[in-house]
Each structure stands twice: as C-alpha cells, then as structure tokens.
C-alpha cells in the first residue's frame, strides 16, 4: 500500500513548555550559589510569614525565604537524580549490549537478575535499604543506581535483540567484523536513542524517588535546601504559610513531568523513525 510520507512537525507546545521548565531548573541548579548565596539564612525574629514584600512566597518557621529555598533546592534535587539516570544508563548499556548481542548463559543470568529486581518496587527496597544502612544522600543515590540499572539493561537488551537479526547486522558478521566492532559501530548507534529516551524517564523517576527518600528523612540531612526535605520540614506549617508546602511540591511535580514529557517525545520520535524506515 502507498505510505503517506511523514508529516514534518515542530515539537508540540507541551514539549516546548517542558524544555523551558528544564532550562529554568538547570539554571537554578547550576548557579544557585550565585543566585541565592544566602538561601539558608535564618531570620528567627521574622519566623513564619505569608507572602509579602521582600518574600514573594513568604518564609518558613525559621524565617528562611521560601523562594530562595526553592532555587537552592534545585541544586540538591537535580544533580543526584542526574547521577542516578546517568549511572544506570551506563550500567544498562555496558550489560545490556553484550547480553543482547552475545546471548548465552551470561545473558540468561543477567536477565534473571533483572527480572528479580524488576518484580520489586524500587522505592520500597530503597526505603528499607537506605533506612537500615542509616540513610544519607550518597547512599540513596547508590541504592537507586543499583535498583534502576535492571530497567535500563532490559530496555537496551530488548532493543539489541530487535536489531540483532536484522540483515545489516548479519551482513556485518559475514564481513568477519569483530563482535566488539559490530556492537559498538553498528548496533549501538541504532539503539542509543532508545537508551537516551529511557534515561529521561529514569531521570524523572529518580528525582521523585530521591525526593521521597528525603521526605522520609532517609536522604539529605534535616534543614538542607532540598525540595523533598523542605516539604517534610514544612508540612506542619500548612496553615501558617501554605506556600512553604505548595512551592516545593509543585517544583518536584513540574520538573518530573517535564522530564517525562521530553522522554516520551524522544521515544515517539524513535518509534516513528522505526515505522517510516
């Protein structure tokens, strides 16, 4: 049948909005020390107050400016999640690529491991492990990397399996190219977009998970400017200054949603390319 050619479109409004949000968050995370050098400065005399002049979103019970805390919070919330997404993507590629391409018992073993990890709710395991081992930001990141890597491995391996029996890979085998060269030069460029899209989705999930751990007191120490931690610290102040709760809550949701939207959009593009090829 005749295939109508692909409609070339600009990214939709939601993706543009999401990219704008991510840009703002990235700027906040990168330049927080210069933008809000005194974010954690307390003003116990002022105490908690609603929005007003000088404090657009009010202050918390320690008299800290909620808006400044929000900007400073990006610096804790984002890099950790980025580490988790990047780390698990790295492991996923390093394990998933050879597992999918070479197969064999190593592949079977890796997949049983991934199945086991996959059947557990990552966040629940992270709560138990981080709680028992005493919590802490670095530990939380490490635990999440270990828990997220199986997903990446599965995604990468699945994508490799889809490519492995394509004639172009077999033709490369017939040219007597080494397995390493075929994996890195032929297969990987075709699955990299999938891995990248998946990393965005992981990024979002890591952000939420880290915020959850901090909320439970298993991530950053109390009083640190982190969105999840601020939410937890301020939840008793619902009535006095609702913005102290609303602002970090919305920041988490908006950032995670933006990451998910971009990730979905990347996936869709890969998928569409796959169909029109």
């Amino acid at each position: 049948m005749t295939r109508p050619s692909r409609v070339v479109t600009r990214p939709p409004v939601s993706v543009v909005t999401a990219l704008a949000i991510l840009l703002a968050v990235a700027v906040a995370a990168a330049f927080a020390p210069w933008l809000v050098p005194d974010a954690t400065g307390q003003d116990l005399m002022l105490g908690i107050s609603g929005p007003g002049p000088g404090h657009p979103l009010g202050t918390d019970d320690l008299g800290r400016d909620v808006l400044e805390l929000l900007v400073a919070g990006a610096r804790t919330a984002v890099p950790g999640a980025l580490c988790v997404a990047a780390g698990s993507m790295l492991i996923g590629n390093l394990v998933g690529l050879p597992a999918g391409y070479l197969g064999g018992w190593a592949d079977a073993l890796a997949m049983r491991w991934a199945d086991l990890m996959f059947s557990l709710p990552a966040l629940l395991v992270a709560i138990v492990v981080a709680g028992v081992l005493g919590g802490g930001y670095g530990l939380a990141i490490a635990v999440l990397v270990v828990l997220f890597a199986p997903t990446d491995t599965r995604v990468v391996r699945g994508a490799v399996l889809e490519q492995r029996h394509r004639p172009y890979v077999e033709a490369a085998r017939l040219k007597n190219l080494s397995a390493w060269r075929i994996m890195t030069r032929h297969v990987w460029p075709n699955i990299a977009p999938v891995a990248l899209a998946n990393a965005f989705l992981n990024f979002a999930y890591a952000l939420v998970s880290l915020a959850s751990l901090s909320f439970l007191g298993l991530g950053v120490p109390a009083g640190s400017p982190d969105w999840g931690r601020t939410l937890s610290d301020n939840r008793t102040q619902l009535l006095a200054n609702p913005w102290a709760v609303i602002a970090p809550g919305l920041a988490i949701i908006a950032t995670a949603a933006a990451l998910n939207i971009v990730g979905d959009w990347l996936y869709e593009r890969v998928d569409r390319r796959g169909r029109t090829r």
């Binding site: 394509r166 172009y168 033709a171 017939l174 007597n176 460029p189 075709n190 090829r277």
Partner: peptide
C-alpha cells in the same frame, strides 16, 4: 579459516529496508 570462508561466500538478503544500517 573463518576469514577464508567469509571471503569465499557472501550473502544478500530479502528486505531492502533492513539490509543497510540506518545509522551509517
């Protein structure tokens, strides 16, 4: 021996859409 065999015989495939690496 493998290299010799690969030099002796090569193959072309049915589906023209997946026979080439889309990334290269």
């Amino acid at each position: 021996a493998v290299r010799q065999a690969r030099r002796t015989a090569q193959m072309i495939f049915q589906d023209p859409y997946s026979t080439l690496n889309p990334a290269r």
